Amino acid sequence: MLQDVNAFVTGASQGIGREIAITLADYGANVALAARSDGVYETADEIDTKALPLTVDVTDESSVIEGIEETVDAFGGLDCLINNAGIAGPTAPIEEVTAEEWDRTMAVNVRGMFLTTKHAANHLRNSDRGRVVNISSISGKRPLRNRTPYTASKMAVIGLTRTLAVEFGNDDVTVNAVCPGATKGPRIEAVIDAQADDLGIEYEQAKRQVFTDDSALGSLVEPNDVAEVVAFLASGRAQTITAQDINVDGGTAWY
């Protein structure tokens, strides 16, 4: 499905990003693994020969430029950009959120996508199978108590996706967003812990009350479910799907 596609995946050191990178490689893609942490090398070990681990800070423009240039030099081009890098940001009412916390959340979750897309753009336009997949969240579509920076950043990703789809359309580059629900992994565990502390309840109660009770399936999302949707959108099978924000959330957000 992705034989010889050259992909650049941000936030590939853990969680959804790692799962996406491994899934793309399993379908035949060459995958550049971009992240700040050494976890990219662990991900590369799982993928083996199709992986290019890179230390990249998506908030640093020079780091992004260097990472994309290394990818193009190694693979001979760039066909697919997966913008997955993100942080959860603070869990607090708006009056307790610091300007630094707000700025950091926006820098990673929004500015990072701007920078990677900006510097990948010409390569994607020159590809005959250009794809961009941005990882947003259903929290960009519905309220999430005491998570203003995160929810605002994820709504921004949806707006970015729709506008980029129009900008890239004449070059047959598709741009879509995937909106996961609460997905199993260390990040959601930390968020649930913070919500439990804020509400004064136990972890399992917070998980049900905040994340699973209002979903059709009543469960957290598996990372591989997200990765499979990303792989489909990155493939030739999705060549006429663009400007969409697709939920993978067990039936939580219905639009």
Results as ranks from 00 to 15, higher is better:
Val248Leu: 09
Arg104Val: 00
Glu228Trp: 11
Asp225Pro: 08
Ser37Phe: 05
Thr98Asp: 09
Leu115Trp: 00
Gln209Met: 14
Val157Phe: 12
Val108Ile: 14
Val248Gly: 00
Thr151Ile: 15
Val58Pro: 05
Asp73Glu: 15
Ala156Met: 08
Val133Tyr: 11
Thr212Met: 05
Ala190Arg: 15
Val229Thr: 13
Val58Trp: 02
Val226Trp: 03
Glu228Tyr: 14
Pro53Arg: 06
Glu96Trp: 09
Pro223Gln: 04
Ala7Thr: 04
Ala253Asp: 11
Asp171Phe: 14
Arg104Ser: 13
Ala25Asp: 08
Leu233Thr: 00
Arg129Thr: 10
Leu217Met: 10
Pro180Met: 00
Glu167Met: 08
Gly200Ala: 08
Ala238Trp: 02
Ile158Ser: 12
Glu228Cys: 12
Ile138Gln: 04
Thr98Ile: 07
Ile246Tyr: 11
Val166His: 13
Ile82Gln: 03
Ile138Asp: 02
Asp73Ile: 12
Trp102Ser: 02
Ala107Phe: 13
Glu228Leu: 15
Gly236Ala: 08
Asn224Val: 14
Gln195Cys: 05
Glu202Asp: 15
Pro186Gly: 06
Gly200His: 07
Asn6Val: 12
Arg111Met: 11
Gly77Met: 09
Thr212Lys: 01
Asp60Cys: 09
Gly17Thr: 05
Val210Ile: 15
Leu124Ser: 02
Asn6Met: 13
Val248Phe: 04
Asp79Thr: 07
Ala182Gln: 04
Ile87Ser: 00
Asp213Lys: 08
Ala243His: 12
Asn109Gln: 06
Ala29Leu: 04
Ala21Arg: 02
Ala243Gly: 14
Ser127Phe: 03
Ala238Pro: 06
Val9Met: 03
Ile201Met: 12
Pro143Val: 10
Leu233His: 01
Arg147Asp: 05
Ala34His: 07
Thr116Val: 10
Cys179Ala: 11
Phe168His: 10
Thr71Gln: 00
Val221His: 02
Ala234Pro: 08
Leu52His: 09
